[in-house]
């Protein structure tokens, strides 16, 4: 009986060290992925803007199609859509969508160049990112003039 009790005690109360060992092994390991703590080079930043502009376009296209359909229904609805697009706020949004499109286009062209092997060096990548930003800023400014 005493032996049985002893065995039972051993089974249910393992030593403290082995408990700690088991806990450490079973615990989910943390991962260092606090993105605010990392320094991203310029090509990485232009790439994430590329992605963001793509998402903006994806959402915006739905509204643009809706506006297009509205404008095609009748002369009155065309006038109505035209009217609603002429406010300052509406123009600002239009400019935003056009900006996203222009940036996405320029960054996409950079991708095509990289696909044929241009701008794949360390310096070339940074230069490509700078050119992408510069060209898009110029185009976006022109687009602003065109919208207003």
């Amino acid at each position: 009986m005493a032996i049985l009790f002893f065995e039972h005690f051993q089974l249910t109360c393992p030593s403290r060290a082995s408990v700690e060992c088991e806990r450490a092994v079973n615990k989910k390991r943390p991962v260092n992925l606090d993105l605010t703590q990392f320094r991203f080079p310029l090509p990485a930043i232009t790439s994430i803007i590329h992605r963001v502009s793509g998402v903006i376009l994806f959402v915006a296209v739905a509204f643009l199609m809706w506006a297009l359909q509205g404008s095609l229904e009748s002369p009155e609805s065309f006038a109505q859509v035209k009217e609603s697009m002429s406010g300052f706020f509406a123009k600002l949004i239009t400019w935003g969508i056009v900006s996203a499109l222009l940036y996405h286009l320029v960054a996409g062209c950079k991708h095509l160049l990289m696909d044929i092997g241009i701008g794949e060096t360390l310096e070339g990548g940074v230069l490509g990112a700078k050119v992408t930003l510069a060209v898009s800023v110029v185009l976006i400014l022109f687009a602003g003039v065109a919208v207003w």
Binding site: F40, P41, P43, A44, G117, E120, G125
Partner: peptide
């Protein structure tokens, strides 16, 4: 691979994985 070249900018041996990936593509 989206060609953001973080790999090239950190490689301590100055190697270029982006270019190699381009060749594989």
């Amino acid at each position: 691979c989206r060609g953001i070249m973080n790999c090239v900018s950190v490689c301590p041996k100055g190697l270029n994985p982006t270019k190699a990936i381009g060749h594989i593509r």
